[in-house]
Amino acid sequence: MDHLTALENKSIFIIREAYYRFKDIAMLWSVGKDSTTLLWLCRKAFFGKIPFPVIHIDTTYKFPEMYKFRDEYAKKWGLDLIVGRNDGQVEAGMGPGKGTKLDCCNELKTNALKQTIAKHGFKALLLGIRRDEHGIRAKERIFSPRDEQFKWNYEDQPAELWDQYRSTVADDNHCRVHPILHMTEMDIWKYVQRENIPISELYLSKEGKRFRSIGCAPCCNPIDSAASSVDEIVTELETTTTSERAGRAQDKEDAYTMQKLRSLGYM
């Protein structure tokens, strides 16, 4: 069996296992390449018709191309799409220019998701995170419980040997399931290439720039790149040395700095 097929099999096993263990399950779709790949795998796992809802957390700051892509494929693939939004904060004008960027992420992403989970009573969520994205994600498990505050106790996790997953969660908790945790950025692109998975045009180079990671428009910076097709992206990644989320790193450092300065009475 080739490498990509082995990865695909593992992902599909996890997706079907999660669905078997949790009936109140949904998947998170950010419209980025990773969760779109996850969506593709879910469709494969259930022969084209996904038997649970797909949640898009809408901060209202996503790129217009992302909304278009979401609506087009939600229709084409017959998704049961739930759009989660923290309406109170959106109406109050929360945004990257108001408060810190950390406040903005917290209200429009984290709290929007908390509200959506509470409203629909989901006990498990499928997420398209990958171990190689960030240092802390390397510590993730495939089945990973969160408490009601979304806290993750990474110091107390089972080893998950031989595909044995712990899927019992307390009443006020939910379980996060990560079917593509074992894939790398390169695996994703090679799989997108092999399967011909549709992806947002934002990933493809226009006038010498493209996005390597997409999210909210004000907080994403494009990279210099001439790669205007998936084939060219694969070639580019084979030679690059910068990290995938480099375009997002400065914001995080600034948010950290601001928080630190505030704790000492500045700002």
Binding site: G93, G97, K98, L261, Y266, M267
Partner: peptide, 20 residues
């Protein structure tokens, strides 16, 4: 007051202070 931090400095302002 509709903006945040130093974006709030309005036309007509002659001076502002940054920490400390």
């Amino acid at each position: 007051s509709g903006k945040e931090y130093y974006e709030q400095v309005a036309l007509g302002s002659r001076a502002f202070c940054m920490d400390p």
